[in-house]
Design a protein around this nucleic acid. Structure first.
Length: 247
DNA sequence: CGGCTTTGACCTGCGC
DNA sequence: GCGCAGGTCAAAGCCG
């Protein structure tokens, strides 16, 4: 796939096609990544583990280097297409979940960036990106909050993607521990909260089903893994130029 | 027994 | 100030 082709695909407005109200140009500006329908309509999420990891990390990359993320996106398109063709020839098991769209937070800084005593309790938590309504705070004491806020001035990169899947928790190669579940207003499906089980890895993910379409699973990741996927050894040993992008 | 899930309690921010 | 909603904690229970 040429770079111009993939760029054109990026800009062709998948969100509009899916009923989203976000114009493609604005979506691009906001940091949304729209995968070409020709690919996403049939790409199995349980394809090559390397691609899964790429899906997990591509938006995080965009927070640090938009150009690098763009290159990664194009590489991903190319590899995913290749992988799809390969799996088409080997097996026709496409009953798995399908990746439909991906987006990342447009802001990677906590609103309380300049934290001090007077900041606590202020209403500066607005304007924190795509998921303003999902601001994160910690259910700990005020003193703990102060310590944690003082320690974490930079917001962890966040991004989410939407998949059509029967299973809530997609196998992304990492090991997760559930730490909470919450019923969200106006939805019949609860939202689940997971944390990466790896020591010193603070990555969290949130899984919920779309209220309008329960077939859709919204997975939101926050943070970057400080390790490689836990049970992808056999896959990650396969040669792939995508490995260069992992952290 | 260790790891994981469940679930009610608790916390914070926000809107009124 | 109060109530609501969302996010997290942590005890209890489950399971291999």
């Amino acid at each position: 796939m040429s770079s111009t082709t993939s760029q054109a695909m990026l800009n062709q407005g998948l969100f509009e096609e899916q009923g989203d109200q976000i114009p493609s140009a604005a979506a691009t500006q906001m940091g949304f990544f729209a995968f070409p329908p020709s690919l996403t309509s049939s790409l199995p999420f349980n394809c090559h583990q390397t691609l899964k990891a790429a899906f997990n990390n591509i938006a995080a990359a965009s927070l640090y280097s938009p150009s690098a993320a763009s290159n990664l996106t194009e590489t991903l398109f190319s590899s995913a297409t290749t992988q799809k063709h390969r799996e088409d020839n080997i097996a026709s098991d496409f009953g798995g979940p399908q990746l439909l769209s991906l987006q990342r937070s447009s802001a990677n800084f906590w609103a309380w960036g300049e934290v001090n005593e007077s900041c606590l309790g202020s209403k500066k938590m607005n304007n924190i990106g795509v998921e303003d309504n999902h601001h994160h705070h910690l259910g700990v004491s005020a003193m703990k909050m102060k310590r944690i806020k003082a320690r974490r001035k930079v917001r962890e990169p966040r991004f989410c993607f939407k998949t059509m899947s029967d299973v809530d928790v997609l196998d992304d190669g990492y090991k997760w521990r559930k730490y909470g579940q919450k019923v969200v207003k106006n939805t019949q499906h609860p939202r689940s909260y997971y944390r990466c089980t790896q020591d010193n890895c603070r990555v969290k993910k949130r899984v919920e089903r779309l209220a309008e379409d329960p077939r859709m699973v919204i997975t939101t990741y926050e943070g970057r893994h400080v390790h490689s996927p836990s049970h992808d050894l056999e896959d990650s040993q396969a040669p792939s130029n995508l490995n260069n992008f992992f952290w």
